[in-house]
């Protein structure tokens, strides 16, 4: 804490950045005539901090929870994290539906010391923020995951019968060799199919972002996650994109794959690369 007047009120948690003219008033409200402001991660009323032609969608949060050190402790608490992530997303959704030309969502727990440091950031990154708002204007994000379908159950391993060309040991080696080649063949086919799916979807998207495949042990899906991608799609192209996804959903079982679509989302995956600092607290 550096002892200025805002310090007592806590820190400023930034949810999103939008164009000034898109969000009127002092607070973010669910609709223009709604009297009660949207509440944020700490139950605080969400404010609109204006600077130049930008507006920061922000809330005052207690330093006891969101200062660097307590925040790092909290980030390991999955229940706390789930609650905060849920409220964070709710604020962004509210801002997004209120703003005509869309908002730039910030990642979880982007925190500033006070209004002045938030304004400093809006000034310093003005060009990048404006460009990103322009790029994301009228777009949505779709998430697509491709999983392998659980394969047909292999019959129980039995002792191979010795054949004319050798004993049990050689028969075992031959069978394992054939199984391994079949596995490799399947894996190559699946890779090719995933590449085809991604190429087809990318053709009707503005931009794509590949995430690391999910660890299958943490996921509820029986298969392995081969593709975990986000697609930035113009609202005008939305029906073309989802039609392409539907086509892939139908083709996928023939390749032993399953395609899953989620969205539309506020384009989180494409905003993160252009906004904000890599770590939570900044600009003190």
């Amino acid at each position: 804490m550096n002892g200025n007047a805002d310090a007592a009120a806590g820190l400023l948690y930034l949810y999103a950045v939008a164009r000034d003219t898109d969000l009127p008033g002092r607070h973010l409200t669910p609709s223009p005539h709604h009297p009660r402001p949207v509440t944020g991660v700490a139950g605080e009323p969400v404010e609109l901090v204006r600077h130049l032609d930008l507006v920061g969608v922000a809330g005052r949060v207690p330093a006891a929870d969101f200062d660097e050190e307590p925040l790092h402790r909290h980030l390991e608490d999955l229940d706390w994290l789930a609650t905060v992530a849920h409220r964070h997303q709710a604020v962004i959704e509210a801002a997004s539906s209120a703003a005509a030309t869309g908002v730039l969502p910030l990642r979880l727990a982007t925190v500033y010391r006070d209004e002045e440091s938030l304004r400093r950031m809006l000034r310093a990154r003005h060009e990048a923020l404006t460009a990103a708002l322009g790029r994301l204007d009228g777009t949505v994000e779709w998430g697509v995951k491709v999983y392998t379908l659980p394969g047909p159950e292999k019959e129980e391993r039995t002792t191979p019968a010795p054949s004319a060309s050798g004993g049990v040991g050689r028969a075992y080696l031959r069978r394992r060799g054939a199984e391994r080649r079949a596995d490799e063949h399947r894996a190559r086919q699946a890779d090719d199919a995933v590449r085809q799916i991604h190429t087809a979807l990318a053709a009707s998207a503005e931009d794509t972002h590949l995430h690391a495949p999910q660890n299958s042990r943490l996921s509820t899906h029986p298969g392995h996650n081969l593709l975990n991608a986000s697609y930035l799609v113009r609202r005008d192209d939305d029906s073309a994109f989802t039609a392409e996804v539907r086509a892939q959903v139908e083709r996928a079982p023939a390749w032993g794959l399953m395609v899953e679509l989620t969205g539309p989302w506020v384009p989180y995956s494409f905003a993160a690369t252009t906004t904000g600092p890599a770590d939570g607290t900044d600009d003190r």
Binding site: G166, G167, V168, R170, Y172, L173, R176, R180
Partner: peptide, 25 residues
């Protein structure tokens, strides 16, 4: 994997293949 590669390369005798195969099994 090593055994299968050597079988593919054909640098094992039949007795060696049989013994390695049995062991692995």
């Amino acid at each position: 994997r090593q055994a299968l590669r050597r079988v593919d390369q054909g640098d094992l005798s039949e007795e060696q293949e049989e013994r390695i195969g049995l062991t692995l099994m």
